[in-house]
């Protein structure tokens, strides 16, 4: 039995040791906002925060999370940077199909929390692990710049 701290609450789960955090979130805890895209850490659709850092939930066994806090797209309500990021996303209509966007947003928040005024190169570096098949990259970059200007 594992105890996970997810979005500010403790959850006891009975899952195999090698089970990635992604499937605990989606299939056990019923938090489907974090998406499955590739299962090998190539696409970033499953990006969540562990201890504030962006990680690929599809490749991180839940048993290795320990008592570090996990934050998913569903757990952002009170966060100031997150509020600005989602607002910036809506202001310029970043999303298309939207499937990768929770991962994109989690990656962007993690970037902005460590570096509120990233350069274009720094944005590219932080965000290029997240694939968007709809090709919303230009708007994602613009939204991140707008947050940097707003906060």
């Amino acid at each position: 039995m594992l105890t996970l701290q997810v979005n500010g609450a403790a959850h006891q789960v009975d899952v195999p040791d090698d089970m990635p955090l992604l499937w605990v979130l989606r299939d056990v805890l019923g938090l489907p906002g974090t998406k499955f895209g590739c299962g090998i850490g190539e696409c970033g659709a499953c990006t969540v925060h562990v201890d504030g850092k962006a990680v690929r939930a599809c490749s991180l066994p839940a048993s290795l999370v320990g008592d570090r806090p996990v934050t998913t797209i569903e757990g952002l309500a009170e966060d100031e940077v997150a509020t600005e990021v989602t607002k910036a996303w809506l202001d310029i209509d970043v999303v298309q199909c939207g499937y990768c966007q929770p991962g994109q947003i989690m990656a962007a928040i993690a970037l902005l929390k460590s570096n509120l005024h990233p350069s274009d190169d720094e944005i590219d570096q932080a965000m290029s692990g997240n694939i968007c098949r709809c090709g919303t990259y230009r708007r994602i970059r613009a939204a991140i710049r707008n947050v940097a200007g707003a906060v």
Partner: peptide
């Protein structure tokens, strides 16, 4: 569909 797609 924007709001639902950014808040998960």
């Amino acid at each position: 569909d924007g709001p639902a797609k950014v808040n998960g």
